[in-house]
């Protein structure tokens, strides 16, 4: 299987390329002007044991809407939940890792599949629908060389 879409198509990266760890650095330095927000969702485990990742880079019109959704997610609860031991029964369930990076956002949570409900579920579904799959080969690229693809998001509840 080849990667869907060329990594270099669409508006590419120069104007939005950032140093690695951009959001945290930007916060610390008090820099402004780069309001790029990136959300990635990845799943691990499952009977296949194959990691898959989807990602969306957002700016402009849809940004506020994404932030609303991100803020609706119970990040602190999820961080707490990951420290709980795995349940005593069952096998081959997947775990989702959800990360948001932006000027005001540097959040990360791990959510076991059975707990992927409510806003978590909405977030994952939207990133998978509106974002792009990240090819496994692409993960080896340094952050600044990652393909950047920008898309306005549809309003919540839209088609």
């Amino acid at each position: 299987m080849t990667q869907a879409g060329s990594p270099r198509d669409g508006e590419s990266g120069a104007e939005s390329s950032t140093d690695s760890g951009a959001s945290a650095d930007a916060l610390a330095d008090g820099r402004s002007g780069d309001d790029a927000l990136s959300v990635s969702v990845s799943r691990t485990g499952g009977v296949a044991g194959i990691r898959r990742e989807w990602r969306i880079d957002v700016d402009g019109d849809g940004r506020a809407d994404w932030i609303l959704l991100l803020d609706a997610c119970p990040w602190s609860t999820a961080e707490y939940a990951t420290e709980a031991p795995a349940g005593p029964r069952g096998a081959d369930r997947m775990t989702w890792t959800i990360a948001a990076d932006g000027p005001e956002q540097a959040r990360r949570a791990e959510v076991p599949e059975p707990e992927l409900t409510g806003p978590w579920r909405e977030l994952v579904d939207r990133v998978r629908r509106d974002g792009e799959p990240v090819a496994a080969r692409g993960r080896a690229l340094p952050r600044e060389e990652r393909p950047i693809r920008r898309r306005p998001v549809e309003p919540r509840g839209g088609a």
Binding site: T2, G45, R51, T95, P133, A136
Partner: peptide
């Protein structure tokens, strides 16, 4: 290209330490 390469080791020398997948059970 999309899925990457099968990450399974065939020998203890290549045992994978990871937090993912319950410590790499698969």
């Amino acid at each position: 290209d999309v899925l990457g390469k099968d990450p399974q080791p065939a020998h203890m020398d290549d045992y994978v330490e990871t937090q993912e997948d319950n410590g790499g059970v698969h």
